Each structure stands twice: as C-alpha cells, then as structure tokens.
Amino acid sequence: MGSTSNPVHEATPSMSLTGHLQQVFSHVKIGNLVAGLSGGVVSTLVLHPLDLVKIRFAVQWYFSLYEERVAAGGTQRTLSRRNPNVWGAGASWGLYFFFYNAIKGYAKEGRQTELSATEHLVSAAEAGVLTLTITNPIWVTKTRLVLQYDAGLSGKHYKGMVDALVKIYRQEGLAGLYKGYIPGLFGTSHGALQFMAYEELKRDYNKYKKAPSDAKLSALEYITMAALSKLFAAATTYPYQVVRARLQDQHNKYNGVIDVVRRTWRNEGFVGFYKGIGANLIRVTPACCITFVVYENVSRLLIT
C-alpha cells in the first residue's frame, strides 16, 4: 500500500531535537544569508527617513525634521539612529531568508510535489520567530535612538547603538532588550503572510506562463509580486507594529500589551492602531521591492 508521508520528517523516539535541527541546517546556504542581508541593507539606506517618520507617528510624538537636522550634533544623531536600522534590517532579512530557505528545504526533502500555501506560511512563521529572538535587542535600540529627542525630560541619553545596548541592559536588564517581543511574535504573522503570498504569486504566475515554478523572473515581475504580497501583509498586521513601538518607547510607561491595547482603544479608538500606516505603506512597499529584487538576483549569483 502506497504512502505519501515523508519518512525523513516522521518523529521517532530516537530522533532528538538536535537531530531535527541538524537535518534542518543541512539545507542552510550562506548565499541566502548574504543575499537577504544585501537586500535589507540596500533598501534601508535608500528609505531610512520614511521609517523615522513612521515610528514617531506610531507613538504620537510630533517633530520637525528640519529642526533636527540643523540642531547642534544633528548629523551625528541622524547617523547614530541609522546604524541600528541598517544593522536591524540587514540582520533581519539575512536571517529570515537564511532560516526560511533552510526550513522550506527540510519540509520539501524527499518530495516531488510543491509545498502548499499552508506549508509556506508555517515555514515563514518559524523563520520569523527565530529571527525575532536574535534581533529584538537591535530593534529596541533603534526605537530608543529614534525617540530620544527629549533626553532631558526622560533622563536617558544614548550616544549610539552600542551605548544604548549597554545602558538598556544595565538599567533594565535582559527584559529591557526584549520589550515588544510578545507583540513581535504576533508580528511574525506579517512575514508569514507576505512570504506565503509571494511564493504563491510567483508559482501561479509561472504556471500561467507554462514555466517551471522556480523560473527566473524579470526585475519588474519580482517588483510586482513583492509589492502585492507586502501590501497584503502590511494592511493585515499593522496594529501590532503600533503596539510594539509604544511598548518600546521610553517616554511612556505601559503595563504590558493589554494595557497598550486598552489605552489606545480608549483614547484614540480604532484609528489609533493604524497611526503612521500611510508613511509605513509608502516606505515598506518600495523597501520590499528593493529587498526582493536584490535578494533574488544576488542569491542566483551565489547559489548554483
């Protein structure tokens, strides 16, 4: 009697967690890490100013970009705030593609059929959890640096990325570096939905063209697939980003995720959970397109 199960993935008493991880990482390709990192860094350098606007709108603090630029030391502050953004985006995209392709390769091992939409969703969600666990301290640092426009009032001032990491750890412990981690876990649904949509769009489009599912597309085609998948994911999951940014903001004290949600709903209503979405959509759509085009082309150069 035939079976469609994959014996490689069947759990057995002798198969330890370490064994499973070894099988997953047998599909690791450093090229995916380098390609993802390249895409994240390039898109961040190009579109950093819009990300600054999005975060500040999300936490309700209004400011003048012109005044910040001309203030004493403004250039240094701008550069210090860009560093964690570049590191965070580069590391996040690199690790995400790194883990995602390894998990996807493991799931597909020994199979002749394509992965389903659900399998793409689960693979991307797992990659998101691993990536977030490693990079959350960088994102906390980024948020703190972006929002330290009133250091005298808050009593906290950070000179740069490393200084912020050290001070947050000393003053708030490990918990301080992982503020926003719980809503960030919910946010892995964003990447999962985006990658699922991206994979399905590529596969259906290639099927429509009667081409192999992994056939190379043109830059314009990659841009279209990336834009559509990103818009879908962003519109679906944006509220968690507002909650996460407010938890990480050093100017306000919240007693956890529920407190942020309750106070935002009470004071601002439904609209409060979508503050900054305009700037976010303007930023993330081209950022995603740049990232995916760079990734697809660099990965094809590095991975045979």
Rank of each mutant, 00 (worst) to 15 (best):
L115C: 02
R144W: 00
T135M: 01
W87S: 10
E109R: 08
R56I: 00
P49W: 05
R77S: 09
S43C: 11
Y149R: 10
E109W: 00
W61S: 12
F97T: 04
L45D: 08
S154E: 05
R69Y: 07
A127F: 02
A89Q: 12
W139Q: 09
T78A: 14
A89Y: 10
A125G: 07
L115E: 06
T118D: 06
T135E: 03
G105W: 01
N83D: 07
V41Q: 05
G155M: 02
L50K: 06
T133D: 02
D51C: 13
F57R: 11
N83P: 00
Y62A: 10
N85H: 13
R81W: 06
Q148K: 01
G40E: 04
A124P: 13
W139A: 06
L95R: 04
L79P: 00
W87T: 14
Q148H: 00
N136Y: 02
T133I: 12
I134C: 03
V146W: 00
H157L: 10
L145W: 03
F63G: 12
V59F: 07
N83A: 15
F97W: 13
T135A: 08
G152L: 15
G73L: 04
A127C: 09
V122R: 11
A71K: 11
V129I: 10
A117Q: 01
A72V: 15
V41A: 12
V53M: 05
V70A: 00
A58Q: 14
V53S: 02
S92R: 07
G155H: 03
V129S: 02
H157D: 12
V122L: 15
K142I: 00
K156C: 09
V129D: 03
S80I: 08
S64H: 01
A58V: 04
I55N: 12
G94R: 06
L130G: 03
E68T: 01
V140Q: 03
T44L: 10
S38I: 00
E126M: 12
L121A: 01
W87Q: 14
H157Q: 12
L130E: 02
N83R: 09
E114K: 08
V129E: 07
Q112F: 13
I134G: 00
E68K: 01
L50C: 06
N85F: 15
E67N: 11
K142S: 10
L115D: 07
T131A: 07
A124R: 08
G128C: 05
D51L: 14
S116A: 11
S123W: 10
V129K: 00
A151R: 08
H120V: 09
G110K: 09
Y106F: 14
G73T: 03
Q112M: 14
L153M: 11
Q76H: 11
V86F: 05
T131P: 09
E67V: 03
A72P: 15
G88V: 06
L50F: 10
V59Q: 13
E67G: 06
E68R: 00
N101G: 09
V53F: 06
T75V: 13
G39M: 02
W61N: 11
N136R: 08
I134A: 07
K54G: 13
W139D: 08
I103C: 10
Y62S: 13
L45K: 04
G128D: 02
L79T: 04
L130C: 13
T44C: 15
V146H: 02
